[in-house]
Design a protein around this nucleic acid. Structure first.
Lengths: 218, 218
DNA sequence: CGAATAGTGTCTATAAGACAGTATATC
DNA sequence: GATATACTGTCTTATAGACACTATTCG
């Protein structure tokens, strides 16, 4: 039976929303190749480690995050992805509310930063290492798609949120403005109201909602 | 840098439609483990081989097929998937019109057969080896989903087809009957008519259509 | 009261669903 | 003409889109 010299890694795409922009967590490489360049955080998969477990570990080690939503995206297996050796990379997408993000808690000493995804894809930011720009482009496309037919957008928000906040998340992910009344009709069945309201703003307060329990796993 | 003992394989889900049923190509294993059990065809990924290239090679070697539609599905990485060793398996789904399927042409001497997917998933057929039943269930789910929002169904038919044939493919994949008039309205913009008709049937002939050129890559 | 944002009612346009009818082959 | 399947017209229902209006807070 074959014993391959192929290494398997997971690359992590940790998305969040900051200042009404979609942001992605990236790290600055401290080693060759691509030293000092921006790259997706990632870890090698242990010989006795589930793929999902490796992703979970990576999210904890690189972003200091536990118990957040993640899903497998795609597996990248080009021959020359990494100049050192053959690496198959299984990409995972994780979504997290900004409040929960605490990337200084990562075990690694690398510099960790949040990049504006649209700027990055338009080439207005630093060019990412490896084939990571392509991976990011794919993830952004999948995210945009899934917003339309899943409840994925909710993962960017805390347990309780206002409908204007939720609408803003949808607008950012879809890249276009939505009509308030229509948006509320569409998501009405997914959410349930709380009895809390926003306070202190110089305008009408907004009611807090949460995702209905029975909608969480549908 | 780590040198892992993880092997990478691709598992192939070659779907076709026969006798108005969704069928899947499977092989009978000639070696332990799971000797004589049904399994998905698959190949190990070479150290100097692209992932997609490995899938393409597998489709050729195991099913004798060239130039057919395929796409990556999901990567399975549980620890105990294979009792011999750690294998990460990247699954690929391929779709082929029955007319084109010629599985006796596979290089391997293994027995190759077409299984009814619904029967298999309901447990009315032989139980597949490894975690292949789970993979099949996932692929069937993805296929069903993609029918609704992509043109994936066309890959089960030859270049030219009648609308009743196309409708039958949709019905098989969706698992429910569709209204003729409504179906035709929905796909009207995707197809263009030819000047050929079915012949010899004891009823009104049916016009042949083909997928519009500009729709092929959308 | 003005500014700012939250929230609702309703009209219109488009798509999905259901059904009934007509058309054209073979035997 | 009987049978079998291909094809079309149209009514109904549901959903998406657009816009105007009312509501409530702070300063």
């Amino acid at each position: 039976m074959k014993k391959s010299r192929i290494s398997v890694a997971v690359d992590l795409l940790v998305f969040t929303i900051e200042d009404n922009r979609l942001k992605l967590l990236m790290v600055r490489r401290e080693e060759e190749p691509y030293k000092d360049r921006l790259a997706l955080p990632g870890v090698f998969v242990g010989e006795e480690e589930d793929l999902d477990a490796a992703a979970k570990r990576g999210i904890l080690e690189e972003a200091g995050l536990k118990d957040i939503y993640f899903e497998q995206l795609y597996t990248w297996g080009g021959i020359d992805r990494d100049p050192r050796m053959r690496i198959i990379s299984v990409s995972y997408m994780a979504l997290v509310p900004l409040e929960q993000l605490n990337y200084s808690a990562g075990a690694r000493t690398t510099e960790v930063l949040l990049l504006d995804v649209e700027e990055l894809l338009r080439g207005e930011a630093e060019e990412p290492a490896f084939d990571h720009k392509e991976i990011i482009r794919y993830a952004r496309w999948r995210l945009m798609n899934k917003v339309e037919y899943t409840k994925i957008a909710f993962h960017f928000l805390p347990e309780e949120f206002t409908l204007p906040e939720l609408q803003r998340v949808y607008e950012i992910l879809l890249g276009k403005p939505l009509y308030k009344a229509n948006f509320r009709k569409k998501i009405a069945d997914l959410v349930e109201e709380t009895d809390r309201y926003t306070e202190g703003d110089a305008h009408r307060p907004s009611k807090y909602y949460r995702l209905k329990e029975q909608e969480k796993n549908v």
